[in-house]
Write a protein that binds this DNA or RNA. Structure first.
Length: 445
RNA sequence: CGGAGCGUAGCGCAGCCUGGUAGCGCGCUGGUUUUGGGUACCAGAGGUCGCGAGUUCGAAUCUCGCCGCUCCGACCA
């Protein structure tokens, strides 16, 4: 993408309403625009990252054997009357009436609807296990939206629903989700710690939240220092191997890690003192096993091998997709701007032309741009007539992990400069070498 | 929803107390200059002063009502 033809409305000054760093940077980097309290338009740069995150979520869900579908944002109230939640949910649920005076709502979640789909089409244990998920906009009419996309009213969420015959099967689905979430966050360059959580209004007894450590997090968290160091890495996972999946969950949850809601001071004290950590975290996902709460209420049953009819065992599992943008920036920034992890960056690399209009630098930049494209890497090429300082400041702000700087001085010696956004380290090399290096960095992506 | 504020140009703000033809910085447009970290100068464009009533010869400014937004708290993915 050539910056001269892109739409990147960056701001030099901080908008007054943004209090936390991720909100400020998303506004300044031209990623979002607020349209109402807690409701945002996603401008091209923000939209690219959002889609990238969605893509990673889809890929990891597919790997775990989960099946995508798409349910609507608007739902009929009747489904929610069946489960009893229409009255329970309260003011957070946005209620709408259509022209025929039917009660509708903008979905804050989809348990009722997915249960309706299930009961209509699944009759036998032979069709289990089944996990269906979608990535769809939700609305919760928060009393006080804040922190930009971290606590908006409208938000994009991946929510998945598992259906199993037995409790044991359902717990495997739960574990499978935990492992797939660990992979998902790791690919994004995040350390998200599963923490035992309180069940909240959805109900159920087995639940973990995934928290990204950040000073601006909304929850206080207590954990063993060894937990954030745990990595899934590139080990091979067979999601059908119950023992292996359970062992990974055990590895990631046996050490102490809890939010303030479930914190147990006595247990915490048992950790050696030097490993006791207290911090704050941003919740970016949650998994629940809740059994037959909805299937019983809504008559979602299957026939067992014995010919009996039993309510299906369910769980629901969410990832806050739009919220992840905020969490990623909270965890990856410095005083000059965002620092995207390679996994989620909107563009893999930026090209800065220091002397737009100079035949040699223009040609070198065009060459780099084409060579990167040939390797499947879409660079953001700053081809505007502007000062070097302004171009650097823009690149630093929007946070592309790598930058190739092309100027007459370097070209005279046959080199361009490759700079790492995170470390600030620069290295001079030929244009060909720079392309090769960037391609290598992104080879696994 | 309790408490506290704020709505004046795309962004950040002054002007309001003490009513008299709407300003500053950044950004934007044209030009000159400059060219390896937000350059300098010149000339411009851009505003229903959130909305509606009222007081007044005259309202951004005073009064009343409404709307929107932000912050702290309670609540939440």
């Amino acid at each position: 993408m050539r910056l001269s033809r892109y739409f990147l409305p960056v701001l030099k000054e901080n908008p007054a309403e943004a209090q936390i760093v991720s909100h400020r940077l998303m506004l300044r980097a031209g990623m979002i625009r607020q349209q109402a309290a807690g409701i945002y338009s996603w401008l091209p740069l923000g939209y690219r990252v959002l889609r990238r995150i969605e893509q990673i979520v889809h890929e990891e869900q597919a790997r775990a054997g989960h099946i995508p579908l798409l349910m609507p944002t608007l739902q009929p109230a009747d489904l929610w009357r069946e489960s009893g939640r229409y009255d329970d949910y309260g003011q957070e649920m946005l209620r709408i009436r259509d022209r025929h005076d039917r009660d509708m709502l903008y979905g804050p979640t989809n348990e009722e609807m997915i249960t309706d789909i299930f009961r209509a089409h699944v009759e036998s244990y032979k069709q289990l296990p089944l996990t269906l998920y979608h990535i769809q906009w939700k609305f919760r009419d928060e009393i006080r939206p804040r922190f930009g996309v971290m606590r908006g009213r409208e938000f994009l969420m991946k929510d998945g629903y598992s259906f199993d015959l037995t409790r044991e099967d359902a717990l495997h689905a739960y574990n499978r989700h935990m492992v797939s979430y660990l992979r998902t966050y790791e690919r994004m360059g995040l350390t998200a710690i599963p923490m035992r959580a309180a069940s909240g209004p959805i109900g159920g007894d087995n639940t973990h939240e995934f928290l990204v450590l950040a000073e601006t997090g909304e929850s206080e968290v207590f954990y063993d220092a060894r937990v954030p160091a745990l990595k899934l890495g590139d080990r091979a996972v067979d999601y059908d191997d119950r023992a292996q999946v359970a062992a990974i969950c055990e590895e990631f949850t046996s050490l102490y890690a809890r939010t303030d809601e479930t914190h147990d001071a006595a247990l915490f004290e048992q950790i050696p003192e030097e490993r006791r950590c207290i911090g704050r975290g941003i919740e970016v996902g949650q998994i629940f096993y809740f059994g037959t709460k909805y299937s019983e209420a809504m008559g979602a049953t299957v026939v067992t091998p014995d010919g009996a009819r039993v309510p299906v065992e369910m769980g629901s599992h969410g990832i806050g997709v739009s919220r992840l943008l905020g969490a990623l920036i909270e965890a990856n920034h410095d005083d000059r701007g965002i620092i995207w992890p390679e996994g989620v960056t909107p563009f893999p690399v930026g090209i800065v032309n220091l002397k737009q209009g100079d035949a040699a630098t223009d040609a070198a930049c065009e060459g780099l741009y084409a060579a990167l494209a040939a390797r499947g890497l879409e660079a953001l090429y700053d081809d505007r007539e502007d000062r070097a300082g302004a171009k650097f400041a823009t690149m630093d702000l929007i946070g592309l992990p790598w930058r190739i700087t092309v100027g007459p001085r370097g070209l005279a010696n046959g080199v361009v400069e490759l700079t790492c956004r995170r470390t600030g380290e620069s290295e001079e090399m030929s244009a060909e070498a720079a392309v090769a290096r960037v391609a290598e960095i992104y080879a696994g992506r």
